[in-house]
């Protein structure tokens, strides 16, 4: 890596100030950024570590909502988000123990890797992403591969998930990285069903609206029978064609519906 300065603020306000410096970069758990730095593919002048900010850590549950601090690591979510079992389960299957004890939900959502798990949960749950400046609805937040509504220097302070009646996340792993080759999060609410797909599209996480419509009338895997997803616009690489990914979207959606609890 290139040399850089490190700042370790203990409050969101101090972090925001530090991020105002030229070429400053926020550092969450570092599970993407640190390897990128080691490859010399990024050269920030200042790294602003968010890991010392207690006010953005922790899981709380209240009135049908579960709110997770942006600096909360995956292991903590897995252990403490039992009120939203599908979400806790998702967190418990990200990477390996080392990743889960470093990586954070805020870091994952800010990075918006097209194969990451959390974006599927946030989008399928209609979550609200709260930053140091504002609240952003998940539907407005994800804007394509590695692209979000976040402004320069904006910090994800918390994510609030309405807890559904039933939900499940089904991930089919890419054999090497074990990121999702295709991951589908299905969440059933009183008035609607939301289906979010990660790993598959060149545009990043997306909602499969046909499936949502079908499932809203009949929340069973059978409701998906007649539907199909096009391979156009799907990622095609060493691990599978766009058509294969499109096929898996349906398979994983059916499995998620069947497993939803």
């Amino acid at each position: 890596m290139y040399s850089f300065d490190v700042e370790r603020p203990t409050s969101v306000a101090d972090a925001a100030t530090a991020l105002g410096k030229e070429d400053a970069q926020a550092l969450g758990g570092g599970q993407t950024l640190i390897p990128t730095l080691k490859q010399r593919l990024a050269s920030p002048s200042v790294l602003v570590s968010l890991s010392g900010i207690d006010e953005i850590k922790g899981v709380s549950s209240d009135g049908g909502k579960i709110t997770i601090g942006g600096g909360t690591n995956h292991a903590t979510v897995a252990a403490e988000a039992g009120a939203y079992a599908a979400l806790a389960d998702l967190a418990n299957n990200i990477g390996d123990p080392a990743v889960r004890n470093r990586g954070t939900i805020g870091g994952s959502l800010a990075n918006n890797d097209p194969s990451a798990c959390y974006p599927a949960a946030a989008l399928a749950s209609g979550a609200t992403i709260t930053t140091n400046n504002r609240d952003i609805a998940a539907d407005d937040y994800f804007q394509g591969m590695f692209t979000t509504a976040l402004e320069e220097g904006e910090i994800v302070t918390s994510v609030s998930f309405p807890v559904p009646e039933a939900a499940s996340y089904q991930k089919f792993e890419q054999p090497a990285s074990r990121f999702s080759l295709v991951g589908v999060f299905v969440a059933k609410y009183a008035d609607s069903v939301r289906v979010a797909v990660t790993g598959a599209s060149e545009e990043g996480v997306f909602r499969w609206s046909e499936a949502e419509a079908a499932l809203s009338g009949n929340f069973s895997a059978d409701a998906l029978e007649g539907l199909s997803v096009s391979g156009d616009g799907m990622i095609s690489d060493l691990h599978g064609s766009g058509d294969y990914r499109a096929h898996l979207v349906k398979v994983m959606t059916k499995r998620a519906v069947a497993a939803a609890s």
Binding site: P175, A176, D237, L238
Partner: peptide
């Protein structure tokens, strides 16, 4: 089942890290 060292037609190594080379 897993391992595949692959080059593209330009001779670029596609499986150049554990992100794509499955052990």
């Amino acid at each position: 089942l897993l391992e595949n060292c692959a080059y593209d037609e330009n001779g670029q190594l596609l499986s150049a890290s554990y992100m794509d080379y499955a052990m």
